[in-house]
Nucleic acid binder design. Structure first.
Lengths: 358, 358
DNA sequence: CTGTTAGCGCCTTCAG
DNA sequence: CTGAAGGCGCTAACAG
């Protein structure tokens, strides 16, 4: 394996110069840089990342902390993060905290982080105090998606506004008996978002002077199958809601499934709306409030990169004006009405929804 | 940051002994090891992975090469791989080759691999010759999932048998007009699996002495939405198939959606079966041939770890007897019938697809 | 069983 | 603008 001194020899300069030239640093005469570049190319030279890390103390690796790797939101966020990192010469190390149980998770340890990453992105996972203390002690910059961490940049959506958009849509269609699927036990690992959505749901209903029966707020573990299971119970009773708002599209799909089993037609007998715009929602014609997960992922990565590179002699990526490395970036969401929501039958206005028969 | 010589000093031994004791290596007197462990704990010592890598030439990092991060198969495989690696003290570095275009992908480069990983797992992506040459040149062990690579261990399912299971099931129900969704242009990046499935489909039909109209074999890009789009064309004609076999569950979902739009009831007018057992398939009541992606992921990781650790002084994980580090492991698949039925016979209660209007 | 010592390959002051 | 030289923290012979 050819190393830096080979290049130095061929280029007829010192290793220090090679190091500087290759990193595009400061003051290296252009002609010198050219010679170095040629020598490097000719020798097929590739910097040893480990040696560089040991010497510099930086790894150009970012850890992605996440409670799940394979769920829609997380997989997409990770994908966007990885792409953005890569474009800037950084790499992504997976730190998956998923455990076997639904409401449990593994703990972040020194071993996972120490000397291994330059910074962290937490994807929608509330970090525990000890974990935050560890991160602080290791002096690792952290950007969080979805969960505010004091002193850290945050990328999020406006949960209240998102849920309100769904509720407003449903209410505008004339529904008054509206249920919610996606309440979550307090000990859930990924607890904040569910909590905020439920709270927003209650507030939005109350803004419309609407009541919710307790049994219309159903708890489940944020999977389609559990949502189906719980919704079945709901539909077993008569006089249930005419519309359901689900905390996520996957749960909405579960609800649709349970409704079909209960011989409820969608949207004639039941309107359903989710949140996300999951990649299958379009095909399932599920109304939803879309959130741009890829945008959230790359924004988080950009902000972190900016922090990591500022002060260095490298070109620091300039942040879009709407991002700031020490504050909150709120990515907009937007209502996507599809076929699963329609006017409540018997409501005053009997316009058909999107020209479709009810 | 405390380092190995601090520990050595406190424990009253040499750095070499600390190194050995901490790695659980060979011949260190138990009492000595204890003292070292105590010192390390007391000092909150954590080995520097970069220094260790530089000195040893090994990184304890495995690269996961994949064409997609967020699609169901890939996200799950990655999740399983990461878990298995982690259990053995290894880390996962993402090498996502996804490009913007559907049928294109980025190329593996020296920069992504060199001195960065000890080994590689290729998740269902056919590596190009140059890429394989690179991997060979870097002397990196490779385990492949889904695509055979000469000289490398392979984890796969039996594609032919899997497709045949679907066909047999459909034929056993009495169908004779059977279509296939999931043919793929030859230039597709992830071309082998689609090709094998289509071939197997044709052979299976021919084994049953059944013919397929050309128009019943539809091409699409292996997403639900494109499958829906293409299937719509199919259903626009009359006298089409009474059953569809889709190359993946996601495509099957697209087919179901298109069928609903075309007023075809499932399963009365059309039986649909996919391959995968996607996490939404149960809720969508989609018949399928299940493959265990997690098993494939962890098997691949186990095999690679075994190769990486054998010959070292560390405890090498013993491979389950069905795995071998230099051959092919075929993970079984199994038929999961859900709502497929005999043709033209239904009329019990006719559930529409998720309660959606036909 | 344990200690000594030379690197691993690069970055980064500090001189010049 | 460039070179010299001392680490970064650990591992791996080689002695003992």
């Amino acid at each position: 394996m050819t190393n830096i001194s080979d290049v130095a020899r061929v280029a007829g300069v010192s290793v220090a110069t090679v190091s500087r030239a290759l990193r595009g640093i400061s003051t290296v005469q252009e002609s010198t840089r050219q010679r170095v570049l040629e020598a490097a190319t000719q020798l097929d030279y590739v910097v040893s990342p480990t040696a560089a890390s040991l010497a510099s103390g930086r790894t150009r690796v970012v850890g992605i902390i996440t409670p799940f790797l394979s769920r829609w939101f997380f997989a997409n966020a990770i994908s966007a993060i990885e792409k953005t990192l890569r474009e800037h010469g950084f790499h992504a190390l997976l730190i998956d905290l998923e455990a076997t149980g639904t409401y449990d998770r593994r703990q972040l340890t020194t071993h996972m982080l120490s000397k291994r990453v330059d910074g962290l992105i937490a994807v929608n996972i509330p970090l525990r105090d000890e974990e935050l203390a560890l991160i602080t002690r290791l002096n690792l910059p952290l950007v969080s998606i979805g969960n505010p961490v004091p002193g850290c940049a945050l990328v999020q959506i406006d949960e209240a506004q998102t849920v309100t958009a769904a509720v407003d849509h449903i209410v505008a269609l004339g529904h008054e008996r509206i249920g919610y699927v996606g309440a979550v036990p307090a000990q859930a690992a990924h607890t904040l978002v569910p909590y905020r959505r439920l709270t927003a749901f209650r507030e939005a209903l109350s803004d419309h002077a609407l009541n919710v029966a307790d049994s219309w707020v159903v708890s489940c573990d944020w999977t389609a199958s559990d949502a189906a299971r719980q919704a079945r119970l709901l539909f077993a009773e008569t006089g249930g809601p005419t519309a359901i708002i689900a905390g996520s599209d996957e749960m909405a799909m579960g609800v649709m499934s349970a409704a079909a089993e209960a011989d409820l037609r969608i949207p004639e007998d039941l309107s359903v709306i989710g949140i996300d715009d999951h990649y299958l929602s379009e095909v399932l014609k599920l109304s939803t409030v879309r959130q741009d997960v890829l945008a959230q992922g790359s924004a988080a990565a950009m902000i972190l990169l900016h922090q990591l590179l500022e002060g260095s002699e490298e070109i620091t990526p300039s942040l879009p004006s709407n991002m700031s490395s020490d504050r909150v970036l709120t990515v907009p969401t937007d209502l996507v009405p599809r076929r699963t929501t329609a006017p409540h039958r018997g409501s005053v206005s009997s316009h058909s929804f999107l020209g479709l028969p009810h």
